[in-house]
Design a binder for these strands. Structure first.
Lengths: 370, 370
DNA sequence: ATCAACTTTGATACCGGTATCAGAAGGTAG
DNA sequence: CTACCTTCTGATACCGGTATCAAAGTTGAT
């Protein structure tokens, strides 16, 4: 109101409210906090004064004494990735429902960033942690052990970890991938490209080598490839390592790798993709070669999107229940925060849903080369 | 190590480190905090002890005394919306760069949720606030005024507000929309559907009514519609209110509304869409009516996506620099936090980029009906 | 040996809440 | 009227850091 700067316009503290109301600090706290016993008269008086002064609690100070921040820490790879964005949405909604806030940090799949993120969240005294870890089997998990030692509950999402057991919420990656690839096989495809295996410098030489590569991969990636191998094995199809990409996960790399496969003597007649960027990259490669989907090449991939339905042809896709993953993780974590370590660990596996549209074409059964 | 529960495994405090190291608390703080003067000997000793005990600072306590949380509050509509997801990514990266964390709350475009979110973030003592407000011209902005009164810096993104001036980062919505629609007009289209005007129960009766509707709309929505009107005016085309949708913003509603337009006696030959869901909904409506793009109907819309390029036809779109919006907002806010209120407000306008692909077809100049 | 100037260190107030405890006020019973 | 139990209230310790201040210890110059 006055034109001269009111020096500290900062929010009033409980002491100031107490002074203004002519009562003790504890009485104010009781009135505001709705606990203990306060006479109705003073209580309403205090509330009125607090409202007049525009009092707001200082959550920091409160957390300081209660030891509870009502905040969940979330560590994931990239908030702009549609999958994680969906997860975050579910997470955020469920947490809000229970009166929790969310502190999100992303790691770009870098373990070093993950460690820093986890440390930061611990420092901020989050009540619990939700992590989609970038760690693979060979990595050091000390940062997660540290979380446990401090008694902070933790829920893993999207990826399990070999050396660290905790509550978890994941998709049935292996089975979903197997089912999807089986669909392609049933449609008569025998040469099926797999876009986005684990990154390696050299493609695995044979099935055995591939299996050991899998041990060093992100859990979800490994599972999807295992599902692919399962489907091949079920149908007695031979595994051809040249049909699995091993490139860094960007759209352009996918395009390049798929183009390579299409140039093979015996090119794939179908592709199975494990993520949005892989799908888009594959489509681009097809377009570059003037191949039509599904007439020339069939396509089936992970992660449904609103766009899939208006593509030409409409794309068949494996839809992950992203929001549910987030929501369940939040619920699990909050239950653990309230419940304690006594109950046994929960390992939730949500089913992915195959949405068949029009990108898989039945292939005429060609006579096998003798 | 020991099998019996070590009662409080919680992280050691500065006092415990001090006790273990046989020095005073202040000395520990100095060693750890790297300030004041400590002899090299004690310093390294303290550091060693701290490391051995696994000491981690309690950010809450620190913030308590310093009055700084190194945390930015972010309020937006929906983290799963690709636009906001992109913004968030830019925001998050830029903030991390400067050593800040981000507390995100989403509002689902509900003003009541926005107020709650802002209050919560203030309670948590964020150092600054970034808000994509759901408020329209007629709404009460007391919650934002309160932020200012508490001396917490605030940056508006994506939407400006009539009654509240602050640092801001937005897109040149009006000009970008005008340019896009002008492209359609240059291609010979005169009946251009506008998908997603402001929500109203009744479509505006005429241009005048429309202008007043705009006052009650979300800023960005209004600007895009103004750009559309600008383009029509520039080309001396008459404005037809039946070509503007006024439905709730969901994909299905867009489909329904567009179907309605296509059933008009003189249906649109081109559509301009203002968001991803509007674009997808429009495409679905075209598909339902077996209309082909761009042969039968041209399409141009806001918010580019990786999918646009592999559509049939590849979609021409207006690409918003989402990450830049987020990054600039974070930079601006942090500068304001460090700088103070003295410098004048900054209103940043980032240009959207039109990406021409193949969804706009030149239309044979039909003779105007006499 | 004396004193000033500087370095190193510990003690302690403080941030803004919550929680405990004890005393004051009011009501009822003996 | 005194004893005792409730209800209400204020004073104060505490959470885990930071910041200030004064005391103790060093060093060097005179």
């Amino acid at each position: 109101m006055s034109s001269e700067r009111p020096r500290p316009p900062a929010s009033p503290t409980i002491s100031e409210v107490a002074a203004a109301a002519g009562v003790g600090r504890a009485t104010v706290a009781r009135s505001l906090g709705n606990y203990g016993s306060v006479s109705e008269a003073t209580r309403s008086h205090v509330l009125a004064v607090a409202a007049r002064l525009g009092y707001r609690v200082n959550s920091l100070a409160r957390s300081m004494t209660t030891g509870v921040t009502k905040t969940l820490g979330v560590v994931l790879a990239d908030v702009a990735n549609p999958f994680f964005a969906g997860v975050l949405r579910g997470l955020s909604d469920a947490a809000k429902q229970e009166g929790y806030d969310i502190l999100v940090l992303s790691t770009n799949e870098e373990l070093s960033e993950e460690k820093a993120a986890v440390g930061l969240l611990l420092d901020k005294q989050v009540d619990g942690l939700i992590v989609a870890s970038a760690a693979t089997r060979n990595d050091d998990l000390a940062h997660l052990q540290a979380v446990r030692e401090r008694g902070v509950p933790i829920v893993l999402i999207d990826r399990l970890l070999a050396g660290f057991d905790a509550d978890s919420v994941v998709i049935n990656n292996r089975e979903a991938a197997r089912e999807a690839v089986a669909t392609l096989i049933e449609a008569g495809h025998t040469r099926i490209g797999f876009v986005w295996g684990p990154v390696t410098v050299q493609p695995a030489e044979d099935l055995e080598a591939m299996r050991s590569v899998l041990d060093g991969a992100l859990w979800s990636d490994g599972e999807r490839l295992r599902g692919y191998l399962d489907a091949l094995a079920d149908a007695d199809l031979e595994f051809d390592t040249s049909l699995v990409t091993h490139v860094i996960k960007t759209e352009t790399q996918a395009t390049r790798a798929v183009s390579g496969m299409l140039a093979l003597a015996e090119p794939p007649t179908a592709f199975f993709t494990t993520e949005t960027d892989a799908t888009v990259g594959t489509l681009r490669a097809l377009r570059n070669r003037r191949l039509r989907c599904p007439d020339d090449v069939s396509l089936l991939g992970f992660d449904d999107t609103p766009w899939a339905d208006v593509m030409e042809p409409p794309l068949s896709m494996v839809a992950q229940p992203m929001r549910d993953v987030g929501a369940r993780a939040a619920e699990l974590l909050i239950a653990r925060i309230h419940g304690g370590d006594d109950e046994p660990l929960v390992h939730e596996v949500l089913p992915a849903q195959m949405v068949e549209r029009g990108s898989v074409r039945k292939r005429k059964p060609t006579l096998l080369p003798r």
